[in-house]
Design a protein around this nucleic acid. Structure first.
Lengths: 213, 213
DNA sequence: ATATGGTAACCTGTATACAGATAGAGCCAT
DNA sequence: ATGGCTCTATCTGTATACAGGTTACCATAT
């Protein structure tokens, strides 16, 4: 069974990620509680969880949907570029046929032009299939969290579909290197893959009017 | 003013870190609440916070003080070795005389043989003085958290004082490189500093009977 | 027009109360 | 004696209630 708090957390997370709840929007415990038909306690739990994930700010007065900034984006990508290649290097020797098969399927799924949310989901699962085999619980948790936060920038500021071609190609290269079984090569491709997304986002953000609040 | 939840969180954190609360010890909301003379809600908040920090496990039935393992230690140090040199490289160009002066004072403090808890505190502040100047909120937060978790292993399993000589020397080298203003050099010295602590802990842990639960 | 003070609406932190879930002790059958 | 079952202690999740604190607005004074 799923607790009310978990349900609210999951729903709010989606709504913040997709931009339905906009940066700066206040999320009071009472209103969240009323909206989901629960009491304030699970609403409060959900907001605390999301705050720990970095999706909302827990101000003194009321919680607000966290804003975005180029400085934060920079920081998030610096972390991803440091950690994901590390996990990759550790994981690749343990990646077997089962994972390769599933990654191939996910690659097809991404090529078949799904919605943005589905594409990003498949993308996350693609990389997760490698990372899981590193057997590093905390690293994987951290990676998931960082990826969620950067994906938010994609949702909010960018139309992905100009780039899926390049991204699909990079994924194919990564998959090939996985099959070859060269950890350092996969790690380096992963780093480049992340750096490319960073550049891509940066180009779009610098073109936008002003960082939304 | 400090909320009841914050007070409980801080106190429990100390008690878990120093080993007064041992790995595996159950922490029920009710007992924590009773012990601190508060209601269950702030106790619950405190346990959630500590769970997010990785100091307790939030099982289905009751929260328990998180255990230690060589695998987790490995993972924590891998992360620290990846992130702290990165923050260092970014921060060093912004470190000024004020920081160097304070770091010198902290170094003296550490040389003067304080208690383990004070030594570790000064040590944390020493490195934090560099990191702060990187202006990377999330990285610093993450670094703080990782350091706390590894410090716990020092408290639980090791008597530091065999090693303070080496550690003080490494700190002095780091400080010198900071004064010279060579980011790459400070970053590398930091990485080695962390790796040395990892090795040190590992040697002691492998000598112990069994990983405590 | 601008500054000031008071008030109402809203929000959080915390306490208390209740229902459902879980673990462990003891009992029963084999 | 042992395996399984039931019962009770305890625990968590959630609802509701209350006591401050904060914000914003409006009326009033300058």
């Amino acid at each position: 069974m799923e607790s009310a708090a978990a349900r609210v957390t999951g729903s709010l997370r989606q709504r913040v990620l997709t931009g339905e709840l906009k940066p700066g929007e206040p999320l009071s415990q009472s209103r969240v509680a009323a909206e989901y038909g629960v009491s304030r306690i699970p609403a409060r739990d959900a907001l605390q969880t999301l705050a720990a994930e970095g999706l909302v700010d827990l101000g003194a007065f009321t919680a607000v949907v966290r804003g975005t900034s180029i400085a934060e984006l920079q920081e998030l990508y610096e972390l991803r570029e440091a950690i994901e290649p590390l996990v990759t290097r550790i994981a690749v020797p343990n990646v077997g046929r089962a994972e390769v098969a599933m990654m191939t399927a996910l690659l097809d799924e991404m090529v078949s032009h799904p919605s943005a949310i589905d594409w990003l989901g498949a993308n996350a699962r693609f990389h997760a299939l490698i990372y899981t085999r590193a057997d590093r619980t905390r690293m994987i948790e951290l990676t998931t969290q960082l990826r969620r936060l950067t994906d938010r920038y994609l949702y909010l500021h960018v139309d992905i579909f100009g780039e899926t071609g390049r991204l699909n190609l990079e994924h194919r290269r990564i998959l090939e290197a996985v099959e070859t079984g060269d950890p350092a090569e996969v790690a380096e491709l992963t780093r480049l893959h992340i750096a490319a997304s960073h550049d891509f986002l940066l180009r779009h953000l610098l073109r936008e009017p002003a960082p939304r609040r």
